[in-house]
């Protein structure tokens, strides 16, 4: 078993055992969308009109909740320090961590997207495109967010700080994401937006392992 798959299995096992950590943010997302539906008094046309914006803002916030604990357990029990001892293995291990972080939030949201679309009263014809847009955009949220999580893992009041650092950098994802869903609702294929989201996700996948590693080293030094 290579280092990559070994670490991947470990991360997946850890995620499987801390089920509450995985499920709580997603339940928060469902709850928050329900609150929006209630606050807009369940008016279907109002809900549908604002659905893309509501959905994307809440996806970002849900990710902030999920990212908050990304490194904390490993930091507390000392395994993070072991992980970073060898620079070569650290890169691979962090890549695994990033992928699993996306699997348990981004991919989960993608799988839930038909349900979210239903609560927001979107027509069933856009569900495939909605899932595709989320599939293209959520990796960027997890990977860019992980850089912030690495920097704030050891900080006091880390969660508010994490959001403050990361959310401004996620403005492009929000804009292209909302624009893509809007275009899908108009019956067009949101090609340009999807390309942009995919490009941002891939670029952040390249940069994030290095930046998180540097951030974690800083966190451990304190």
């Amino acid at each position: 078993m290579s280092a990559f798959t070994g670490q991947l299995v470990r991360e997946l096992q850890l995620a499987g055992r801390a089920r509450a950590d995985v499920l709580n943010p997603v339940i928060f997302l469902l709850l928050a969308i329900t609150l929006f539906a209630l606050a807009l008094e369940g008016k279907p046309e109002v809900l549908r009109e604002h659905a893309p914006s509501i959905l994307w803002v809440l996806v970002l916030l849900t990710n902030m909740l999920a990212l908050d604990g990304m490194f904390r357990r490993d930091l507390d029990d000392g395994s993070l320090e072991q992980l970073l001892l060898s620079p070569a293995a650290a890169g691979i291990a962090l890549l695994d961590k990033l992928l699993v972080q996306w699997l348990v939030t981004g991919l989960l949201i993608v799988l839930l997207s038909p349900l979210l679309g239903m609560i927001l009263n979107l027509p069933a014809t856009v569900y495939p495109l909605l899932a595709l847009v989320l599939l293209a955009g959520t990796p960027a949220v997890s990977f860019i967010g992980a850089i912030g999580a690495a920097l704030t893992a050891g900080a006091r009041r880390g969660s508010a700080l994490l959001a403050l650092l990361v959310l401004p950098m996620l403005v492009p994802v929000l804009i292209f994401g909302v624009s893509a869903v809007n275009r899908a609702l108009e019956g067009e294929a949101p090609r340009a937006e999807l390309y942009w989201l995919g490009a941002i996700s891939l670029a952040s996948l390249m940069a994030a392992p290095f930046a998180t590693q540097a951030g974690l080293r800083i966190t451990l030094e304190q």
Binding site: L161, A211, A214, E221, Q222
Partner: peptide
């Protein structure tokens, strides 16, 4: 970020990463 990281050196390097990103 600088306010919340306790050691001055760590705060500097943390801000450096954030500024570059």
């Amino acid at each position: 970020l600088r306010e919340s990281l306790s050691s001055a050196e760590a705060a500097g390097r943390g801000c450096a990463i954030l500024a570059i990103v």
